[in-house]
């Protein structure tokens, strides 16, 4: 395809994407340097970097930052490992059950996130099934406390997101080099050795890419935390998105909320830049 035609064809999409995403980023930088509430939304007052200073000295911001990191460190490895194990097991199913199981497994991932969280939460509320089991086992009612809400959020994120790596790995397993596996078997390699020396190296690019995507998605997770905490900072289970939402839409400090958003964008760059470099190299190799 010629260069001119390429630009003609891709212009509508690229212009929409780039203008509608770069403009708000610029506006966010602008607003982050101003004092803005709902009242003076059209006449912001310039305050320099004081919004950033206010955030960086706010203990609630650091709380949110810590919890964002805790989610990444705990949830992502479990999602990857659980997804990988379940993909290996599902690969062993060759009957019609495969489709049925796959459909049920996909449910948490394709349901509206807000609704999924609500359903998950109902199990633990008064009258909920798991709350009842909890009372039967521990002989005390299940309470929503800062600790329990944080644990629930992490379990919910595992419930919600694991289907994604699972399906990706499952599809990857369908493309395994059969001849290599057969050769290894003839040489007397055990199943475990085959897994470690053939399957995992083969899936490495997929594992790497999925981990990066999960890290970025868990970092910007919002719906789940909002429903689970009921927008209440009491549970100390806010992440950075929730913090900036609350500061902006509930406390009405739009400047400060935009500054938080800018800081989170800077934060995501830590993962994003290596990821972009890897993708860039892969793409150049393919061209």
């Amino acid at each position: 395809m010629k260069r001119k035609l390429f630009f003609k064809f891709s212009a509508p999409s690229n212009l929409t994407m780039i203008t509608l995403m770069l403009i708000p980023l610029g506006v966010a930088v602008f607003l982050s340097l101003h004092f803005v509430t709902f009242v003076n939304i059209n006449t912001p007052k310039f305050v320099g970097l004081s919004n950033y200073a206010a955030i960086l000295t706010d203990p609630q911001f650091w709380q949110a930052f810590r919890f964002s990191m805790v989610i990444l460190i705990i949830a992502v490895p479990i999602q990857i490992v659980l997804g990988f194990c379940m993909a290996l097991l599902l690969d062993q199913i060759r009957s019609i059950f495969r489709g049925v199981i796959l459909a049920l497994i996909l449910l948490p991932f394709v349901v509206v996130p807000v609704v999924g969280t609500l359903m998950f939460k109902q199990l633990f509320e008064v009258g909920g099934l798991v709350a009842y089991w909890y009372r039967a086992v521990f002989n005390q009612p299940f309470l929503f406390t800062p600790t329990s809400v944080r644990v629930l959020i992490i379990i919910h994120l595992i419930w919600y997101v694991t289907p994604y790596p699972l399906v990706v790995f499952f599809a990857g397993l369908q493309g395994l080099p059969e001849s290599q596996l057969e050769a290894a078997e003839v040489d007397g390699a055990s199943r475990w050795q085959q897994l470690v020396h053939i399957v995992i190296p083969f899936l490495r690019p997929l594992l790497l890419m999925t981990s990066m995507i999960l890290i970025m998605d868990m970092y910007r997770m919002f719906d789940s935390i909002m429903v689970m905490t009921e927008q209440n900072p009491m549970y100390q289970a806010e992440n950075l998105m929730m913090y900036s939402y609350r500061v902006g839409m509930m406390v009405q400090r739009l400047g400060r909320a935009n500054a938080t958003a800018i800081l989170t964008v800077l934060g995501v760059m830590v993962v994003l830049i290596p990821f972009l470099r890897i993708t860039y190299k892969n793409q150049m190799r393919n061209e």
Binding site: M21, P24, L31, R220, M241, A257, V265
Partner: peptide, 22 residues
């Protein structure tokens, strides 16, 4: 393609709030 991937990773909050003002 790379720019698109970068946009995809950005937190929704970074668009939602400025668009409120816009």
């Amino acid at each position: 393609i790379i720019i698109a991937l970068a946009f995809r990773a950005l937190p929704r909050m970074a668009f939602a709030l400025p668009y409120y003002s816009i």
